[in-house]
Amino acid sequence: MIVSSALMIWKGLIVITGSESPIVVVLSGSMEPAFHRGDLLFLTNFHDDPIRAGEIVVFKVEGRDIPIVHRVIKIHEKENGNIKFLTKGDNNEVDDRGLYKERQNWLEKKEFLPYVGMVTIIMNDYPKFKYALLAVMGAYVLLKRES
Rank of each mutant, 00 (worst) to 15 (best):
K144T: 08
K101G: 14
D96F: 04
I75M: 10
A34H: 15
E79N: 14
V26P: 02
P127G: 02
N105D: 15
E111S: 10
M31D: 00
V141C: 07
V116C: 03
V136K: 00
K144G: 08
Y100P: 05
D65I: 13
V136N: 01
T87N: 01
N80R: 09
F42A: 05
V72P: 03
I83S: 05
D65Q: 13
Y131F: 14
Y100R: 04
G54Q: 00
P67R: 00
I75H: 00
K78N: 14
E62K: 09
L40M: 05
G29D: 02
I16S: 04
V72W: 01
G63H: 01
V61E: 02
I14K: 15
L142S: 02
D125P: 14
V136I: 06
P127C: 04
I73S: 03
K128N: 12
K130H: 09
L40R: 06
V57A: 02
K110I: 10
H47G: 12
D95F: 04
H76W: 13
H47V: 12
S21K: 15
F112V: 03
R71P: 06
M118P: 15
L41C: 04
P114E: 08
I51H: 01
D96L: 04
K11C: 13
H36C: 11
T17F: 12
G117D: 02
H47Y: 12
N45R: 11
Y115S: 11
G54F: 00
G63T: 07
N82R: 15
N91I: 02
K11E: 08
H36R: 14
A139F: 07
V119P: 04
K109W: 10
G29V: 05
V69M: 09
F129L: 12
E79Q: 13
I73Y: 05
Y131N: 08
I121P: 09
L13D: 03
K60A: 08
D49K: 14
I16N: 05
P114H: 14
K128C: 12
D49N: 14
K130V: 07
A53H: 07
I16G: 03
F42S: 04
L86C: 09
W106N: 07
N91K: 05
L41S: 00
M137P: 12
V24K: 09
V26F: 06
N45K: 07
I122W: 11
D48L: 13
I121C: 12
S19I: 04
N92I: 08
E93G: 13
M118Q: 14
G138A: 06
T120F: 07
I66F: 14
L134V: 05
V25W: 11
A132L: 13
L40D: 07
G12N: 01
V26A: 03
F46S: 10
S5H: 13
R52F: 05
D90A: 03
F112L: 04
S30D: 03
E111M: 11
L86S: 06
D39G: 00
F59V: 05
H76S: 15
